[in-house]
Amino acid sequence: MNRILPKWTFCLAVFCMPFCAQSQVLISLIFGDALNSEKVEFGLTGGMNRSYLSGITSAEGLNNFNLGFYFHIRMKENSFISTGVLVKSNVGAKGMPTYSLDDPAFDGIFEEGSLTKKINYFYVPIMWQQRIQKRWLLEGGIQAGLRSKAFDIFEVERNEGDLEFKTEVGDQLSRLDAGLVGGLGYKLKEDLKSMSVGILYYQGLVDIAKSDSQISKNSSLNFFLRIPIGAKGE
């Protein structure tokens, strides 16, 4: 049920996030040794994501965190297939004007507020990874996403305290997303399996809005850290 909540309730969500992260790390630690082999590297990936929505007036970039698993499958000496699943991956935008919900009392409260759109996806990238001088990583390929939930978040600042209203809008968006992804990374050690950092850019090619009056596509800039689990340097 939709409710108007004080903005401080956001702190509770932030407090709960580490428990979700810990459960995924635990799974990685349990299965890391079994999934890593001479030709396969398995690990945990996470980082910050700056996402955008095209076709929406006044939309600004939205900062999110993502977390998931990755696989690097060795094809040749310095060539790999890089794939995996981003289990927690949010996209969307903020700073948009609010809209009417045909409730005069509600509209009066949030008329001067701002709207944030947050969409939860399970993303699966499939990229070709080329390693240069053992440390530099060039990656490029495709990425598909399956939407789980989507929310419009109304926010307004008032003298008596900030207010927030959150409503589910998944029925307004398509279930699937897909596009192109690519970027650059750097391995912190020359070992075949070692931690790496980098940046990936995703450009969605699918119009995710069901409305005929609007075309909207996802895009995002992802700063990642990859940590191999159960792997020994080679």
Score class of each variant (00 low, 15 high):
L192Q: 14
S148C: 03
I153G: 05
K210D: 09
S219L: 03
N36M: 05
E160Y: 08
S148R: 14
T83M: 05
Q203K: 14
G179E: 05
F15L: 15
I119E: 00
R74E: 14
T98C: 11
F19H: 05
K149W: 01
E155N: 15
F42Q: 06
V85F: 15
L137K: 13
K88W: 12
F106E: 05
L29V: 07
N78D: 15
H72Y: 07
G92A: 00
S219I: 02
E112P: 01
M96V: 04
K88P: 00
S28Q: 12
G84Q: 04
E155Y: 11
V40L: 11
E38L: 04
P97T: 03
Y52C: 00
T98G: 08
S213R: 14
A93M: 02
Y121Q: 09
N159I: 10
F42N: 02
L137P: 05
V40D: 08
A209Q: 08
V156G: 06
A144M: 12
Y121T: 03
G179L: 06
G230F: 03
A34L: 14
W136L: 15
L86C: 00
F65N: 10
G182K: 08
D212K: 14
M75L: 15
E155S: 15
R50N: 04
L29D: 14
N78W: 03
S54T: 12
I109G: 09
I81A: 06
Y121D: 03
A105C: 01
A34Y: 12
F224N: 06
E234Y: 11
R74L: 09
Y201P: 04
L44E: 02
L101Y: 11
S174I: 00
D152S: 13
G32F: 07
S216G: 04
P228I: 12
E60D: 13
I73G: 05
K187I: 07
S37D: 09
F42T: 03
G182E: 04
G170Q: 09
F110K: 11
M48R: 07
G140Y: 05
N90Y: 11
I229Y: 02
M127I: 06
A59N: 02
G145E: 06
V156F: 02
K117Y: 00
